[in-house]
Computed example of a mutant assay.
Amino acid sequence: MRLIRLKEVIDSTGLARSTIYKFISEGEFPKPVSLGERCVAWVEGEVHEWILSRIEERDNQKQGVSGI
């Protein structure tokens, strides 16, 4: 299991910092793990799964559109 810092989450998802925290507050993105008083990181696998779910959501929408 690997923990990644915010910069890598931003690089992996293409999201802005504010968007990541907005999605977290809405329950739409994995929560970070506290590493100390002012340090957090994310579980890399959870971020990867979130990305894959977005891809799956996109692919499901394409199938719905093509079935019209």
Rank of each mutant, 00 (worst) to 15 (best):
E57R: 12
S18P: 00
E44F: 02
W42Q: 05
Q61P: 01
V47P: 05
E8A: 12
I10T: 12
I4E: 11
I24A: 01
G64L: 12
C39T: 12
I20P: 08
G67Y: 14
F23C: 03
G14R: 09
T13Y: 04
S12P: 05
I51S: 01
D59F: 09
T13L: 11
G14F: 06
L15P: 08
T13K: 09
V47H: 08
V43G: 03
E56S: 14
E57G: 10
V65A: 10
G27Y: 03
A16W: 11
T19W: 05
L52Y: 11
G36Q: 10
K22C: 07
I51K: 14
K62V: 09
I20Y: 08
M1D: 13
S25F: 03
F23Q: 09
K7V: 14
I68G: 11
Q61Y: 02
A16C: 08
I10S: 08
I55D: 09
S66G: 03
Q61A: 14
E56P: 05
K31T: 01
R38D: 00
W50I: 02
V43Q: 07
V9T: 07
V65R: 12
R5L: 13
R17N: 06
P30E: 03
G27K: 05
G64N: 07
W42F: 03
H48W: 11
E37F: 06
W50R: 10
V9Y: 03
V47D: 10
G45C: 03
F23G: 00
G45Y: 05
E8Y: 10
H48Y: 08
L52E: 11
H48L: 13
P30V: 00
L35F: 07
Q63P: 01
M1G: 15
F23R: 13
S25L: 04
S18G: 05
V65Q: 08
V47T: 08
S53A: 08
P30D: 00
V65K: 09
K22D: 12
